[in-house]
């Protein structure tokens, strides 16, 4: 249960706003962190906490692209292929990355480690090609550098187990 495990963070979120509903976005992030995605159970829990209708919470989760309503890999790789990055070779970079990992757009590697998607501008256009891994910036990339990062992430995941 989120309320028990994340009591402090949930209280801190509620304390920011004059009404409970405003905490729905921070709480959805907490739920996603706990379950790895925004599952139907997560939606029920968040709705209960924010005193909202579950269908309302579900529509919020669906509207915002950073919430995932399906399970994904351990690492979410969001590659920017918007215009400025594309002028610096981001489309080719993204294709090579997909080929290297053996996945298509939106796909997850067989070992459940990486889900790759292309995204719109991430405010890092002067450091293209770039991506975010679980919403942290990884910039000024080429294939050699990203292969090294992928090895590091795989190793970190092994350690976690």
């Amino acid at each position: 249960m989120l309320a028990e495990k994340y009591g402090d963070r949930i209280e801190a979120a509620f304390a920011k706003y004059p009404d409970k509903r405003s905490a729905v976005m921070p709480l959805l992030y907490i739920a996603q962190e706990e379950y790895g995605w925004v599952s139907p159970e997560a939606i029920e829990e968040v709705a209960g906490l924010c005193e909202m209708d579950p269908t309302q919470v579900k529509s919020i989760a669906g509207f915002y692209t950073m919430y995932s309503e399906k399970p994904k890999g351990k690492y979410w790789l969001h590659v920017c292929t918007d215009l400025p990055c594309a002028l610096k070779g981001a489309d080719e970079f993204y294709q090579e990355l997909k080929d290297y990992l053996g996945v298509d757009e939106g796909g997850t590697t067989e070992d459940g480690m990486f889900t790759v998607e292309h995204v719109m501008c991430l405010a890092a256009c002067d450091k293209a090609p770039m991506l975010q891994c679980n919403f942290h910036y990884v910039e000024n990339l080429d294939m050699e550098k990203i292969k090294q990062k992928i090895d590091e992430w795989r190793a970190a995941a092994k350690k976690d187990e």
Binding site: K16, P26, Y29, T65, M66
Partner: peptide, 21 residues
């Protein structure tokens, strides 16, 4: 307050809606 991936939330009235949950 963190948004969650929607360009339109930069438009000021959408931003306020989003803040209100």
């Amino acid at each position: 307050h963190l948004g969650a991936g929607a360009y339109i939330c930069g438009e000021e009235s959408a931003l306020l809606e989003s803040l209100e949950g």
